[in-house]
Structure formats: C-alpha cells, structure tokens
Simulated assay, not measured.
Amino acid sequence: MAFLGLRKWPTPVAKPIWPFIAASGLTFFLVGKMQDAGVKSEEFRNDPRNPYAAQIAKESAPHH
C-alpha cells in the first residue's frame, strides 16, 4: 500500500544519473581549459577587452 504516493522501497536516484554527473564534470573541466587556452592565445593576449591581460603580461614578463 502506498502512502501519499511513496513506495515501500525508495526509487534509486544516484545510480541512473551517474553518467550525467560524470559528463557534466568532464564538460565543465574541458570548457574551462578551452577558455583558458583562448584567453592566453596570441590573438587575444594583448586585447584591451581581455580581463586577464594584466595577469598574462605579468606571467610572461622575463624574470631576472
């Protein structure tokens, strides 16, 4: 007998959704890597609209 639509055994949640969680994590990681590569690319490195231009210039400055 169901009480307010609840069954005796709970419906599995994590087991059927794990591929989507794994794919989301992988997508988040890869998109972040692509964004970082794009921001540091030669074309956009010195663009004044690049919010990371100062940080990139500081990192690529020659250290003596």
Rank of each mutant, 00 (worst) to 15 (best):
T27L: 15
K33C: 15
P62E: 00
A37Q: 12
H64W: 06
A53N: 12
K33H: 12
A61V: 01
S41Y: 02
S60M: 10
F29E: 06
S41F: 03
F20I: 05
F3S: 00
S60N: 10
Q35N: 09
R45H: 08
S60G: 03
S41L: 11
L26D: 06
L6M: 00
P48M: 11
I17G: 01
P48C: 11
A37Y: 06
A37L: 14
P51A: 11
L6R: 02
G32T: 13
A61S: 06
E59Y: 09
G32D: 11
R45F: 10
A22V: 08
V39K: 01
T27V: 13
E42H: 10
E43S: 13
F20W: 11
M34N: 09
K58D: 12
P10C: 04
A53M: 14
F28S: 12
K58V: 03
K15Y: 09
P12W: 08
P48Q: 13
P62A: 01
A22R: 06
G32F: 06
R7F: 07
W18R: 07
E42S: 15
S41N: 14
P19Y: 03
P10H: 05
P19K: 05
E43K: 15
G25Q: 10
K58C: 03
K15D: 09
R49V: 08
K40V: 02
I21Q: 08
I56Q: 01
S24C: 07
D36R: 11
R45T: 04
